[in-house]
């Protein structure tokens, strides 16, 4: 047990060293044209048992940009996004094939540790899922288990501020996270994700269970987040995709029971104004789905 822990600990610190070298470059290149690569996905397929849920997905996710994934229900957007931090395989019988590069690391390589990957690629879920801990501990826990040695109070405050929640909870940090409203809980989950300082943040319909005001707050947070993080978001709300994203991927299934495909992937403006494929146009103009 002990040796395993040290090994993990070292793995994490290696990661942060690597990031310390990489980050400034990314930061330098991103404002220019956004040509830096956040993640590179090649021929990804995901399975539930023997059922192929999505297939043949290749896409480049740009660093410090928001990439939105849209498409009708059941076409594999959520399945796909869960493959990007190896959360898909948590479901019994589920597995993925293909290559997903995060920096130099292929996250599906033999030597890659899902625990380390998930720390580098954070995730916010559809339904807010705060832990049964205080607001403070909800944010601090992830950092603690990842061996954070710095000032935890500062980290908690910074993360809550980034998630636009600090002002609402600063006087009740010791209270349970369950006492918050749905929108606040979701921002708490975002803060919790930010507190482990990931490189990429995946969001699986983060606002679908929230009212318009909370949704607005989450969207504001996102435009703030892309300054320092690469964001991938699944959404059913096309206006939302158009408002917040730089790139948009359209997922589609031709025939019921087939695996989902990435039908079209381009800059958001192009997808919404002049897409190459007819199905994309039909979907974004609201003709189906």
């Amino acid at each position: 047990m002990e040796t395993k822990k040290t090994r993990e600990g070292r793995g994490v610190s290696e990661v942060s060293d690597e990031r310390r070298e990489v980050r400034p470059e990314t930061g330098g290149a991103a404002p220019g044209g956004g040509s830096t690569l956040g993640m590179k996905i090649e021929n990804l397929a995901a399975f539930y048992g023997s059922f192929r849920a999505v297939t043949d997905i290749s896409m480049d996710i740009q660093a410090n940009k928001v990439t939105a994934l849209i498409g009708p229900s059941g076409c594999g957007k959520s399945t796909f996004i869960r493959c990007l931090n190896r959360m898909h395989e948590v479901i019994p019988g589920a597995r993925a094939e293909g290559k997903v590069a995060l920096g130099e690391q292929d996250i599906y390589a033999k030597n890659s540790d899902p625990v380390v990957i998930r720390r580098r690629v954070g995730m916010v879920f559809q339904k807010p899922n705060p832990f049964s801990k205080s607001i403070y501990d909800n944010v601090a826990w992830g950092a603690k288990i990842n061996g954070f040695r710095g000032n935890v109070d500062e980290l908690v405050e910074r993360s809550l501020r980034q998630a636009a929640l600090w002002d609402e909870v600063k006087d009740r940090l010791k209270e349970s996270g369950f006492g918050l409203s749905g929108g606040q809980q979701q921002r708490l989950c975002i803060a919790r994700t930010l507190a482990v300082e990931p490189e990429v943040i995946l969001m699986d319909e983060p606002a679908s269970a929230l009212d318009p005001v909370s949704t607005q707050k989450i969207e504001d947070t996102m435009s703030e987040l892309k300054k320092s993080y690469t964001v991938v978001i699944v959404t059913h709300n096309m206006q939302q995709a158009a408002r917040i994203s730089d790139y948009t991927g359209f997922f589609y299934i031709e025939n019921m029971g087939d695996p989902g495909h990435l039908w079209e992937f381009d800059e958001t403006e192009k997808i919404f104004s002049n897409p190459d494929r007819k199905e994309t146009e039909d979907y974004v103009t609201g003709r189906f789905g």
């Binding site: 993990e8 994490v12 931090n85 959360m87 948590v90 625990v115 380390v116 998930r118 720390r119 580098r120 954070g122 995730m123 879920f125 339904k127 899922n129 705060p130 832990f131 049964s132 826990w141 992830g142 288990i145 990842n146 989950c189 919790r192 994700t193 482990v196």
Partner: peptide, 21 residues
């Protein structure tokens, strides 16, 4: 399950998830 997934997504191991969450 969502609570376990929340912990995994922060880079928690199975043991940390089981005992602390």
């Amino acid at each position: 399950r969502s609570l376990r997934e929340g912990a995994y997504a922060l880079g928690a191991t199975k043991r940390e998830t089981a005992t602390k969450i």
